[in-house]
Design a protein around this nucleic acid. Structure first.
Length: 154
DNA sequence: GCCAACGTTGGC
DNA sequence: GCCAACGTTGGC
């Protein structure tokens, strides 16, 4: 089983929104970055665990845990001209963008803020992608050691 | 709202 | 294939 971190702006789609969906699951659409796309399409496996991160908000940080319930398949929002994430260059016969389905597992007992995580950048979280300068990827791998350490902070 | 960082686009 | 211009991300 692998571990991941995904970012979402809580104004757009928060951990609570996921928890409120039927079956507590939804598709993770709208990723329009090739590196992230490759991970969604090729690497994420059913059962993988995911840190749910709130970005671009008052208190950015990890707020909960989700799991992959469906592996990569074409992101249909790219085909819909009325959708915010429409991409005319994505051909239904050769889709450019992919998504997975996630299911809510639980919220953390308290948010682990970016600020707090940063205090471990020189220690246990050395090299953690989320903390690296200029990092903008909305999907990234988390090592087992990083996963366990972060959960131990909770 | 500002702005640094970075990915993408497109002219050449 | 280079690189300037532009758009987006996301912390602050």
């Amino acid at each position: 089983m692998a571990y991941w971190l995904v970012k979402s702006e809580p104004e757009e789609f928060s951990i609570d929104d996921l928890a409120k969906r039927p079956g507590k699951r939804d598709h993770w659409d709208g990723v329009r970055n090739y590196q992230a796309r490759n991970m969604l399409r090729d690497q994420m496996r059913k059962g993988d665990r995911i840190f749910f991160y709130h970005s671009n908000c008052a208190e950015p940080g990890i707020v909960g845990i989700a799991e992959v319930v469906r592996e990569g398949y074409p992101d249909h929002t790219a085909f819909d001209p009325d959708d915010k994430h429409y991409d005319p260059k994505s051909d239904p016969d050769d889709p450019r963008w992919y998504m997975v389905d996630l299911r809510f597992v639980r919220k953390l007992s308290r948010p682990l803020t970016l600020q707090e995580l940063k205090t471990h950048f020189e220690g246990k979280l050395k090299g953690f992608q989320l903390l690296q300068r200029g990092n903008r990827l909305s999907v990234m791998p988390v090592s087992e050691q990083q996963w366990k350490f972060i959960l131990s902070l909770e």
